[in-house]
Write a protein that binds this DNA or RNA. Structure first.
Lengths: 261, 261
DNA sequence: AGACTAAGTTTCACATAATGGAACCACAGG
DNA sequence: CCTGTGGTTCCATTATGTGAAACTTAGTCT
């Protein structure tokens, strides 16, 4: 999947290459990339050189492999702290985690996928980057559905087109139709469930974070297991979660005027 | 500043723009960027469009501002988990933190700057992205000097050229000469100190993480305050830190063969 | 209102920068 | 010594990006 069919210009291609490297998740050789890439040898080679020269990739001389560069980590730090809800939402997540004692996720929608930007774990201490930055499917997670439910028609269709509808479990909503029906229900009640749709035994209740104009800018969820609780019990928390979501929405609304300069 | 004088090609410029946005650390309007950018209006505009279209930037319709995009966060997660020492070093850092009870930093060198990739805080729980991804000066931090001390001549000169030598405190080594002398001493003894060179009252002892060939791929440090301890006490820990660094080096050495495929 | 100004967007002739087929190099096996 | 595979460089061709200037809005001042 050379993915981004609409790769505009040279930078589009370069970023596409970055994604390719990222997708492997381990050091890759030139030839690893060449197969499956639509770019001709020389072009791919030059793109890699440029990216490496720019610090977006790192080249291991000895092994002849490329990995993602540290410049990305630096940029992402800035991205995370200025563009994500995480820094704002932190105190509210802490609170919610303390009160519920369950796992909390904060997610945003990125190109039709769920991007987790923060997390509180019931038991273990927080796990740095290893959780923030993770992506997941939108059509079969609580946070994902909560956000999809508030997209306008155009954006929704675009997002749906990007879903794989892979059937992770027997409960997974595996067609656009089922999903759309579910989204209406979610809009109605104001929060979403994950009924073991992504992983067996894992359930959650998720609430969208809405702007005044009704756009979903993120979602918060409380996750648990069927062993420990059930949907009804989680639903009882919905009000509490909504409350947190509303408060996050409120600070997010103000925050866009960091300085009026 | 327009920094990257050697901005090769279009992607170089695009990435340069990304950095510019990142540098402000808050939503920026078009005109904010235009001043201080050497690119002509139309060019800058097109670059911004492309980056936005690619999800590297996000554009806020209402305010007319750009911020870094979430795609970066996604990429960085991959970068952090495949290219940084953090995932490998984690258990050793935990151990070191537990034993010393002080603040632990894990850093790598990126374009002449110190990039913190992980951290253990004495008291508070870990702070996600907010610490990882941060950058700091190399010439006046323990981890920075520890790594500089093991650069070869060419790389060292290049790195020194990138230092600001801003005098943060009376103790800051504010010339290349003083720094070079210090680096020799560090190489001799195998670890570096920060003698309140960056922040008054903050001291640390840092050890480079060395490959078999003697290249520094990162550094670990134990940080404390003059109120709580002193350099002599920190130096007593040096052996312990060296031990951690050596063990991290060992796993890092193997790790580059994730699968021989 | 009407006349200015500043911020953002589009155009278009032009030149630079990316393209990719093919040739080249280096090295490992047979 | 030949042959194949992985990686790097050339270079004529052309697509792409360039940027001065013109154009739209959306405010602001008088």
């Amino acid at each position: 999947m050379a993915s981004d069919t609409g790769a505009d210009g040279t930078v589009g291609k370069a970023l596409d290459v970055l994604d390719m490297v990222a997708a492997r998740g381990r050091p890759v050789r030139f030839s690893d990339l060449q197969v499956g890439s639509s770019y001709p040898k020389a072009t791919l080679y030059r793109l890699l050189q440029t990216l490496t020269h720019q610090g977006m990739l790192a080249y291991d001389e000895d092994r002849g492999t490329y990995t993602l560069g540290l410049r990305l980590v630096r940029l992402a730090h800035a991205a995370w702290s200025t563009s994500s809800l995480a820094p704002l939402a932190r105190p509210y997540l802490d609170e919610l985690a303390a009160e519920t004692g369950e796992t909390i996720h904060l997610a945003q929608l990125d190109q039709g996928q769920v991007l987790y930007v923060d997390k509180r774990n019931a038991t273990k201490p927080v796990e740095m980057f290893s959780s923030a930055g993770k992506v997941g499917p939108a059509y079969c997670t609580g946070v994902g559905k909560a956000m999809l439910a508030y997209l306008d028609d155009g954006a929704l269709e675009a997002a749906i087109a990007r879903q794989s509808f892979h059937q992770f479990t027997p409960e997974t909503l595996d067609t656009p139709e089922k999903l759309k029906a579910e989204l209406i229900a979610i809009r109605d009640r104001g929060y979403a469930f994950d009924r073991e749709e992504h992983e067996p035994g894992i359930i959650c209740c998720a609430v969208p974070i809405l702007t005044r104009t009704g756009r979903a800018i993120g979602a918060v969820s409380v996750t648990s297991t069927t062993a420990r609780t059930d949907l009804a019990a989680l639903e009882a928390q919905a009000g509490r979660i909504k409350d947190s979501a509303a408060r996050i929405a409120a600070v997010a609304e103000d925050w866009r005027f960091p300085e009026q300069g």
